[in-house]
Structures are given as structure tokens and as C-alpha cells.
Write a protein that binds this DNA or RNA. Structure first.
Lengths: 188, 188, 188, 188
DNA sequence: TCTTAAGCGAGACGGTACGTCGCGTCTTGGC
DNA sequence: GCCAAGACGCGACGTACCGTCTCGCTTAAGA
């Protein structure tokens, strides 16, 4: 086995770091997550971490993109409201219960006082997620079940916004009934 | 001027600390906000800070409650939609542009990985704010302009949720048109 | 027990550091002597070392002055040559065999590329030692056994110079016979 | 120009390293002399340095032997004292003012806590230098101007010892008068 | 009036983590 | 087979804050 050479970095070290960061975030929380600790858990030199990442949020971002981004694609049942009921339930569960959701919340939290991170987070995840979020609406327009003139952006916001709000701000539970009522408002 | 006495804390020191914390948060951001720095800026001994607060978020929470909580009361014009248009516009501005909003975002961010802080934040601000947020709806019901059976909680979420979502997550601008369309959905 | 307050540093920490430095120099040698290691062995925070000393040589210098400087006072038997035979033998043993001598050699070594240290070393030790080195000559002049016009500085150099030369440069042994012949040259 | 071949080491790389080491020692001092820095300045891979030398002192030793060892041969005027006056003056100047002397002081300094280096330094330089140092004495004996029974080793020590002592330990200046008086003591 | 105890500014303390530098080892592809 | 390049694990550097502590002061209540 070798460690690093001129033709690029050690993939092994890279994976170790991402996994260690993920594990430690879930185990100890963001505040107690340190680069020193990540390096130690990963069995890697601290310098190796600093060589490839500039901060612990960069590591989390890469880890997040790597293993979690594709989870949240809405289903395609041919029924607009049914698709969103399922999708929003999954979104709520992702935000409040999953490990990947914990990483996402940590990143979103840091992005509040780090505009560069906010931009990166949008670029690598949020923009793509937004496209996935609107898929059922686009399919409904294709099927003719929804007016083509609708402001999809605003409509998506009205669906996912309250979910994020409850998950990130008020901490209120997102019940099936809550989701169902939310989805019913699409018919405007 | 005096420092200390045997009957209670120095109000002067308390104010200095809160102001220093507020200023430094806006100047340097949450990550560079340190208790050591707050104490120095406030001209106060570190021990004095630790005597009365347990963390920098506790200080920010007290500062936030002290100077900002009352800003976000919706107007009462007798017109439901007009009240919310104004209220949501103010909410968006508060979240994205004001100093107090920066403190709120920092606290909400920290609350993502600190359940105790999340609970405190709800207790001292969010619950009360929620009551203020629903005032126009309650007045509309009293006026008979809205069905008494409506689920006000869910309705409030559908109004403020998208605002928080844009301000805290996607960073998209909240335009007057966006607010107007959002408010129009109340009539369901 | 207390650690530090506004009325000066902890004497306990100071002693621990000096002893740890002394011990570690003898155990591991100068190259493997680290401030991190000294702090750990002394049971002291690294910052406490840096607060009071600027380098490991500063620590060694203080330790050296504290426990070793007074060892090398020549005896006073009333016999000039006898006094120097004894003194030079002790000097050789100090330089090549004692722990304090090891510290002295380390400091002299560092002083080769650190003029500030060289000056400090002279100020706190060498100048005083030089005065002790010439005592037998001065007593001999008082007794009338030596011409008052002699260049004492040069004479002292001719006595101690070869001892330092063998101890620090060539590593040749300093035998009793060598010392005896050296001392015999005083009668010029 | 070529880099590497299958028939032995690159003389070009060797020279670059020795020159870089010499230059950097004089420019930055021994403490700031690093193998990493030498390799970079020499335009050579770190591995190439490690392939041929085991430490920075080994490099300096080779550099020292290469360019400086022959400077200190005493003149041969046929006059014992005159030869030594000139030789000791040159020795003092070498030790305190020349670049090669800086390298020598650095090596002697390191040799204080590195017996292997001390032995190497003697083997490659000091022993030979000692032979050069005694040449005038040997010539004087041949000429009959000095008793054949004299202890030449001790005599040489009494001449060069004080010079090294002043140069390496006390830092006092070595004046022409000082040298002259020292040389006068040969006639014992 | 005089003691006395609580709060104060100050700052040293034992720690942990920071981000950087240099160590000595390694692997690679080119010559 | 040596070379330039450079990533790697490692360990120490010197710094910044952490949260705790002791100190001498000021002050006001109560003995």
C-alpha cells in the first residue's frame, strides 16, 4: 500500500477523513467536531486534512454531497398530491432524523455567518434539490393537470418552506395531517 | 462609578457585556465572537461574564430579547391581506438586513446542535412571536371575514415558513410581488 | 494551593519548569529537548512556559544560574600553583562530567549562532566566573609572590583557555599531569 | 544537462547541495537551516539529499572539508615566533569572521551533544589541523632552536587554546598584542 | 462606626485545538 | 538507477480561548 505520490492524493486518506467527519458529527455534535479529532479518527496526519480542505465545514460539505444528495427525489406515481405528500414526509424525516440531515443542518447553520459557505452549499446541493422538488409540478403541467402559467418557484416555496421552517426554526413536529393539508393548497 | 457591592450585580457591567456582544457579533461574526473578546470590549473581568452567563449564546439570547423582540408586531389596518403584506415584508427585512436579525440567525444556527438553546429560544422569543404572527388572522375571524374553523397554526406556517426558508436556507430575495402572491393564498 | 494571581507568577510552576528542563536535557540531550516536553514533564501548561520564557535556552540559562554558578570558586591554600591545579582540575571535571556542565556546553553551543544568548551568558555567568578564575592571582599579588604589573586577563586565558579548548573542541582528556604543566607556566 | 542516470550519483546535485547549505547557514543561521530549505535552494529533490547525507550537519561537514580546510597552514619564515604570530592571527580571524569559520563553529556547537559528530569532526579536520598547528614547532626543533624533549601537544594547546577560548566562549577580541604576548610564552 | 462579605477588574493557571513547519519515508514517471 | 516532484504520518511549534482560581479593591448592610 502506498500513501500519496505526485499523481494525486491518496483516495484512501480522502475517504477516511470524510467518514471520520460524518461519524464524529453524529457522535459528538458540530461544536465538538475538531480537525484534530477528525485526523486522529481517520488515522491521517493533520497536515493531510489541511492540504485538501480549508475548514471542517468544507469536509462536511464534501461528505454530504458524496453520500446523501440523491436521497430526496420525489416519487412519480402520476398523482401530483400523492407525490408531494410522500416527498414532503421524506424531506421532514431527512431534516429531523437522518445523519445526513444532521450534516445538512450543521452546514445551513454555519452558512448563516459564512456567505461563501452559503454559496457553496447552494451550488453543490440546494440548486439541484430545488430542481428535484419541482419535478412533480412539471410532470403535472405536462399531463395538463396544472396551468402552465403557474409560478413554480413560488409554489415550491409554499410546499417546502413550511417544512424547513418547522424543522429548522420552531421544532414543531411535521405530521401526516400537516403535510396533507399543505399539499391540498396546491389547488389554487 | 462603583464596581461591585454586597447587594447584587452591577447593572452597568451587565449592559456593557450585552452591548459588546451585540457589536462584536455584527463586526466579526459569530465564529470570531469570544467571551474573552466580549469581556475586553466591555471593560469587564472575564469572571464577571462567567458569573452571570454560561456561554456566549446565553449572552446573545439576553441581548436579543432585550433590544429586539418587539419589532415584529403586525400592523392593524382592518385589512387582513394588507396587514400580512406589511408584516411579512418587515419579517424578511428583519431576518436578512437588521443587526437583531443577525443575532437571531446566529442563535437559530447554534440551536441546530444545541437542543437546550432551541428550547430557550422558543421560550423567550419564538412562542411569543408566533402569537404576534397570528394576530391579523384572529382579528379577521372576529370581524367575520374568516371562517372560525380554520387551522390557524398551519395557516401561519404557510405564510411565514416560505419567508424563513428563503432567508435562512436558499438566500433568494423576498420581493414585494413574492409576498403579495403568498398572502393571496390565504383565501382558501 | 493556588495557581497564579495578579501579584505575580507561581513560584511552584517556575521551579517545576526549571527542574524539568534540567532533567530532560541530561536524559535526552539538547536536540530532543522541547518546550512541549518540558511543560508536560513539569505538569504545567505550555502557555505558562511561553509566558515567562522565550525559548528553551532561556529556561536552561535560568536553571543554570539558579543551581550551578557557584561551584567553581578556586580554593585558597596560600599556594598559587596548588590553588590553580585544584581549580583547573575541577573546571575540567565540571565541563566534561557534570550535569551543570552539560547545560553550560549546550548554552555555549547555542551562543555560537545567537549573539543575544552569548551576551546573556556572559552577563549572568562568564563575567563572574572570570573574576573567580583570577582570584588566586590577585591573592598572590597581595602576598607579593607575583609582580603587580602582570597582565592578569591574559594570564587567566593561558590557564583556562587550554582547558576549555580540550573540553569543548578536541575532546582530549585533561590529566593531572597536563594541568600541572599548565600551571607551571605561570612563572614567567 | 541531465538528471540521474543508471551509473552513479550526479556531481551537479552534490555541488548544488553543498553550496546551498553553505549559503543558507551564513544567511539564516544554523537554527533556521533545514534540509527542506537546502533541497529547495539547491533545486534538488529532498530524497536526493537523504540518499547521500544523513543530517544537515553531515552536509555542513562535507561542505566545510571541501572548501575550507586548507586555509590554516602556518607560514614558514624560519622564525618560530613570527610564524605563530601570523598563524594565530589568521586562526582568530578564521574563527570569528570567515564564513568557513561560521560553519566550523556550528559544527563544534552541535558536536557538544553529538559524540558521533565530534568524532567525525576530529577525523576529517581537527586531527589534520593539529598537525598543521605544530609545524613551526617541529621545524624549530629541526633547526635546533627548540629542545627536542618539549611536550609539543601541550605547547600547541597553550598557543591555540586561548584563541579558541576567546573566539568560542568569552567573545573577547584577539588583538595583535594579545597574540604577541601569547607567543612570547613559548620560550619557557 | 466599624466590620465584613459580595461583586468587581485583573490576570495567571492547566488545558485543548488551532494552523504551520519541518522531519524522514514513500511512490511515481522521466531520463 | 538516480533524479525532481510531492503526498504521506508524525511531532513540535507558538498562539488563542477555554473555564477556574486567587488577589486586593470598593462598597453598603448590619453588628
Amino acid at each position: 500500500m502506498h500513501h500519496g505520490n505526485r499523481h494525486g492524493r491518496s483516495e484512501e486518506a480522502r475517504r477516511s477523513v470524510l467518514e471520520a467527519a460524518d461519524d464524529l458529527l453524529v457522535e459528538r455534535g458540530f461544536a465538538k467536531l475538531t480537525i484534530e479529532g477528525i485526523a486522529q479518527r481517520a488515522g491521517v496526519a493533520k497536515q493531510t486534512v489541511y492540504r485538501w480542505w480549508s475548514s471542517k465545514t468544507e469536509i462536511l460539505l464534501e461528505a454530504f454531497v458524496e453520500d446523501a444528495a440523491e436521497e430526496l427525489t420525489p416519487p412519480d406515481t402520476g398523482d401530483l398530491e400523492r407525490d408531494y405528500r410522500e416527498h414532503l414526509r421524506r424531506l421532514a424525516r431527512f431534516l429531523t432524523e437522518s445523519d445526513a440531515g444532521a450534516v445538512f443542518r450543521a452546514l445551513t447553520a454555519e452558512a448563516q455567518h459564512d456567505p461563501a459557505l452559503a454559496a457553496r452549499l447552494r451550488a453543490v446541493h440546494l440548486d439541484r434539490q430545488r430542481e428535484r422538488d419541482r419535478l412533480p409540478l412539471e410532470r403535472a403541467i405536462e399531463r395538463g393537470g396544472l396551468s402552465a402559467g403557474a409560478d413554480l418557484d413560488a409554489l415550491v416555496d409554499r410546499l417546502v418552506g413550511p417544512i424547513y421552517y418547522r424543522a429548522l426554526v420552531t421544532g414543531q413536529e411535521v405530521t401526516d395531517g400537516y403535510v396533507a393539508e399543505l399539499v391540498r393548497t396546491i389547488r389554487v
